[in-house]
Nucleic acid binder design. Sequence first.
DNA 1: ATGAAAGCGCTAACAG
DNA 2: CTGTTAGCGCTTTCAT
Lengths: 307, 307
Amino acid sequence: MVSDHLARKILQAAEELGYRRNPLAAGLRTRQTHTVGIVLPDLTNPVFPPIVRSAEHTLDAQGYTAVLADTGNRRRRERTIIDNMKSRRVDGLIIAAARRKDPVVDDCVELGIPLVLVNRTVDKHHVAAVINDDELGIELALTHLLDLGHRRIAYVGGPQNTSTGHRRYKSFIRLRQRFGLASERELAVNAVDYTETAGQTALSRMLASHRDFTAVLAANDLLALGCYDELRAHGLRCPDDISVTGYNDMPFVDRFDPPLTTLHIPRKVLGVQAAKILLERIRQPDAPIKQVRLEPRIVVRGSTAPP
Amino acid sequence: MVSDHLARKILQAAEELGYRRNPLAAGLRTRQTHTVGIVLPDLTNPVFPPIVRSAEHTLDAQGYTAVLADTGNRRRRERTIIDNMKSRRVDGLIIAAARRKDPVVDDCVELGIPLVLVNRTVDKHHVAAVINDDELGIELALTHLLDLGHRRIAYVGGPQNTSTGHRRYKSFIRLRQRFGLASERELAVNAVDYTETAGQTALSRMLASHRDFTAVLAANDLLALGCYDELRAHGLRCPDDISVTGYNDMPFVDRFDPPLTTLHIPRKVLGVQAAKILLERIRQPDAPIKQVRLEPRIVVRGSTAPP
DNA sequence: ATGAAAGCGCTAACAG
DNA sequence: CTGTTAGCGCTTTCAT
């Protein structure tokens, strides 16, 4: 071997001469593309960009390139996208779009593709994931409302085929019993999607039957915004008539009218951890499967007040 | 050749047998990766996700995969990212992060890499781009304020090394002369970045010297939000004391306090057009260079009122 | 028309 | 330790 210094000089000269090694060719040979796929359910949901960005930077710092894709919340597209990524031979996958039962995820596990779920997880518990503590989050929101004096609290949940939707709903039901709160079936409705319109629809169903609740706990900020809309449509004021809480503390919710009380999740850490764990799995496929659960923190703003 | 029907059947059987063709190997041979790079200045700016999404879908429908990357507004990273994409042999590039003088863009043009700029463009005018009509936008905002009765109108501009920042600023200066408005130098300050803090800083400089304007025209929604913050810090109310307008009509600005009067740009069309033009250039590299300029539309909301 | 062979740019294995 | 070669999976060219 020549000296390290010389070697570097040669490489540099080669670079300057216009040589760039072709990672495609290298990948063809080594079966390592140094590429990681990131799969999102919805790029336009502001929760994700910060997660993606921190993941991307972490990956990049280690010489990996991120390939992003957006499923638009559609199952078929999720499959297509991941198929495509597999055929492009990504070294691993970060999936933020997982459903509780997700055949696409199962396939990846079976094929041994390094995989980390972020934000949402699947029911089977032997897959790497970095998520937030949904149970804790709901408890924080609920006790905040109880502290303010609310007793009749409605719940607008997320889709039950996602881990977040399911866990938050279960937690709410369990806690409301523990605290001896009103527990009519109609006081907890799950939206079909994490979107504003779905949230609005859910709340409108509730307002049609029970108008006597003083607060609504929404499983997600977008749903909470839908609640804002529906309340406004009924001439109800938030928080004067009804308090509202969200989940995620996505960017800009502090500027809404009223500023949303919600649960903050450490988005940056989520992204960084997901990337790090994935790289670990890529380098040591047999290392134990890590699951990280980060604590949310309640951020009290103007959308909650005493009844 | 066998019949079309039979051929399809065979291909299908092969698929089912688990065969997937390897696009890397194909790309190595044909020098076509069917991959397109999309370069953003800032993923967390809500203007971009809708553009990206529509571009991605258009690309996808034609068998191309998008590789996203976020420069975090840093020049060095822009270079690194595009270098990386080049070495990964993307077939073309959609760049939303262009500066007015952008050596990275120049390099791509020189190397003959198919390229489309979106949202922002460069000063040299022989590169494909799909942007909005900045001059028209500023005129719409300004005449709206004039119609409301404002005469002393301040301007918070964007970075002058971007085409949008530069054009909007020039338009404002030109129009304010044409309309015979107050034209102190201090009444137009350009922020160093399209961020809330930069907007806030810019407005604070203006408030320190001239407190007598009744409206501020901001070159971008994020800057306008920064103005909201600074006004609030000074105990000034919007729109009662001072009206504010933005630019981009990014998602959620209609829910802010107050809802922002701003210019809507057709984001979806922007993304679709960029993708289509790029694909055209990829398939016919010698086709004439297209430049599309879309019309913005003013959306009047609660942040503007008579002085 | 069909089938064999060369080669894209790289790395890993193999002789020298 | 250095230099040579085979081959990753595909497409394209060239004989047959």
